[in-house]
Simulated assay, not measured.
Amino acid sequence: MFYGFAATAVLVVHLGFIVFVLFGGLLATWRRWAIAIHLPAAAWGFAVEATGTGCPLTPLENALRARAGMARYEGGFIEHWLLSVIYPEGLTRDTQYALAGTVIVFNVLVYAWVFGRRKGK
């Protein structure tokens, strides 16, 4: 039971991290210290997508699922849990490049807005 709970916890953390990579810059509008945490997280998210390497949370989750007697899944977190919702036909390198670009463009826009707003005050 512990390993099943731990696998689910890793899954939730993984999803939370992805959301933070995309939207964590918005915390800077509220708490400036969030920048110091978000920029390295966004850089990691960009690097994982741009290089096609897997996130270390996926093998950890799979190991925990195996210890719990749950079915392991093939591929990475995005392919297994999110791809069918976001990209039903499969994850390609071009899609990964697009995701990496989305991380950069979205966060550049957020930080431009945050710093532009702070400059105006």
Rank of each mutant, 00 (worst) to 15 (best):
F2V: 06
Y3P: 01
G4W: 00
F5S: 03
F5N: 03
F5M: 02
F5H: 04
A6W: 00
A6E: 02
A6S: 04
T8C: 03
A9E: 09
A9K: 09
V10M: 10
V10N: 07
V10G: 06
V10R: 04
V12L: 03
V12P: 01
H14C: 01
H14Q: 07
L15S: 12
G16S: 12
G16T: 15
I18F: 06
I18V: 14
V19A: 13
V19H: 03
F20G: 01
L22N: 13
F23R: 10
G25A: 11
G25K: 09
L27F: 15
T29G: 12
W30P: 06
R31F: 13
R31L: 12
R32E: 14
R32P: 09
W33R: 10
W33Y: 15
W33G: 14
A34E: 14
A34Y: 11
I35M: 11
A36L: 11
A36K: 02
A36G: 08
A36E: 11
H38N: 06
L39I: 12
L39Q: 09
A41H: 10
A43S: 11
A43R: 08
W44D: 07
W44N: 07
W44K: 07
W44P: 03
F46D: 09
F46S: 07
A47Q: 13
A47S: 12
A47P: 09
E49P: 05
T51C: 07
T51Q: 07
G52D: 05
P56L: 04
P56V: 01
L57P: 03
T58V: 01
L60Q: 03
L60C: 05
L60I: 04
E61Q: 01
E61W: 00
N62V: 03
A63N: 01
A63S: 07
A63F: 00
L64R: 00
L64A: 01
L64V: 00
R65G: 02
R65D: 04
R65M: 02
R65E: 03
R65Y: 01
R65K: 06
A66W: 00
A66H: 00
A66K: 00
R67M: 02
R67K: 08
M70T: 08
M70E: 10
A71N: 05
A71F: 01
A71V: 05
R72P: 02
R72N: 10
E74F: 04
G76N: 04
I78M: 13
I78T: 15
H80I: 05
H80Q: 02
V85G: 05
V85C: 05
I86D: 15
I86A: 11
P88C: 02
E89S: 10
E89G: 04
T92R: 03
R93G: 15
D94Q: 14
T95E: 11
T95G: 08
Y97L: 06
L99G: 06
A100T: 12
A100F: 04
G101S: 07
G101P: 10
G101Q: 08
T102L: 11
V103T: 14
V103M: 08
I104Q: 13
I104Y: 14
V105N: 10
N107Y: 06
N107Q: 11
N107H: 09
L109D: 14
Y111I: 14
Y111N: 05
A112H: 09
A112W: 12
W113M: 11
V114S: 04
V114M: 08
F115S: 09
G116Y: 09
G116R: 06
R117I: 12
R117Y: 14
R118V: 15
R118C: 06
K119C: 12
K119M: 13
K119L: 15
G120L: 13
G120F: 12
G120W: 10
K121N: 14
